[in-house]
């Protein structure tokens, strides 16, 4: 444990996330095959690929929402294992935003943002509320703090979900198709928040099909298919000169019309 904590000391140029030869099966179905991925501090990565290609599963392995069977994951210097204490330590460094928001419907927006601060970080309520309001302000939804999630639009809910994750002051943010469940006119308000976050230097892994977002902020675009990383390249190369045929086909299908 002390070794892990020492390794987690900030300021070093160790990779933020290191995934080595990751393999995962659902029963006999091989979802992730030999994934190798290194994410440096402050890097913004967009992951795309056809549905069922394992992209969500991969980022869900990073905070152990999914268990992997082979390979290693190291987050901020802390190697992942099956010890729940270790997993919770990693989760405190990793924020996550889900496709379906997963806000707590029985709590107000403000309470949603305070819950983990109070129970995980053991902050006094007043302090938690203050920092929650700061983040709600940043996603421009502070005026809705007293409302319940069910009273907000999809875009507003997703911004609250981002604020809730940021309240924990994570070092990495994982986005699992954050705009896929939104009406088209709400996608922009969520992407704007994400772009702003990217410009502030947050390390981000983002599963999305918003290619405009990828072009604007990504340092690297990763293409996955059938549980493998097929291609990884900076956005200019990825969109203009994709190497593999599978990537070309995918791009022609999503950009073609």
């Amino acid at each position: 444990m002390s070794e892990a904590q020492a390794a987690a000391a900030p300021g070093d140029d160790k990779p933020m996330i290191q995934i080595e030869r990751l393999n995962k099966w659902y029963g006999s179905f091989h979802v992730l095959r030999d994934i190798d991925l290194t994410v440096t501090r402050g890097e913004r990565i967009v992951i795309c690929g056809p549905s069922g290609s394992g992209k969500s599963t991969m980022i869900r392995c990073i905070n152990h929402l999914e268990e992997h069977q082979q390979g290693s994951i190291t987050v901020n210097g802390i190697p992942m294992n099956h010890d729940i204490k270790r997993i919770e330590q990693i989760r405190r460094n990793v924020g996550m935003v889900f496709q379906h928001f997963n806000l707590f419907p029985h709590l107000t927006v403000l309470e949603n943002c305070c819950l983990a601060q109070i129970w995980v970080q053991k902050k006094p309520r007043a302090e938690a509320e203050q920092s929650a309001m700061e983040y709600l302000e940043r996603v421009q939804i502070a005026n809705q703090a007293k409302k319940y999630p069910g009273q907000l639009s999809g875009g507003q809910q997703q911004r609250v979900a981002i604020a809730r994750a940021l309240c924990m002051r994570p070092e990495v943010m994982l986005f699992d198709e954050p705009t896929s469940a939104l009406d088209p006119e709400m996608i922009k308000e969520v992407l704007d928040v994400m772009i702003e976050l990217a410009h502030e230097g947050m390390t981000m892994l983002c599963v999305t099909h918003e290619m405009g977002f990828a072009k604007t902020v990504a340092d690297r675009v990763i293409f996955m298919d059938q549980g493998q990383i097929i291609e990884e390249a900076p956005p200019e190369t990825f969109f203009n000169n994709p190497r593999s045929e599978r990537t070309q086909l995918f791009l022609s299908q999503i950009l073609g019309h």
Binding site: H64, E88, R91, M96, A116, W119, V120, R164
Partner: peptide
């Protein structure tokens, strides 16, 4: 199960997730 996952992602322990969410 999204509710449980959201709680896990925030670092809440089992009893906290059950009791609070």
């Amino acid at each position: 199960k999204g509710q449980n996952e959201a709680g896990q992602a925030l670092g809440l322990g089992y009893w906290q997730r059950m009791g609070l969410i």
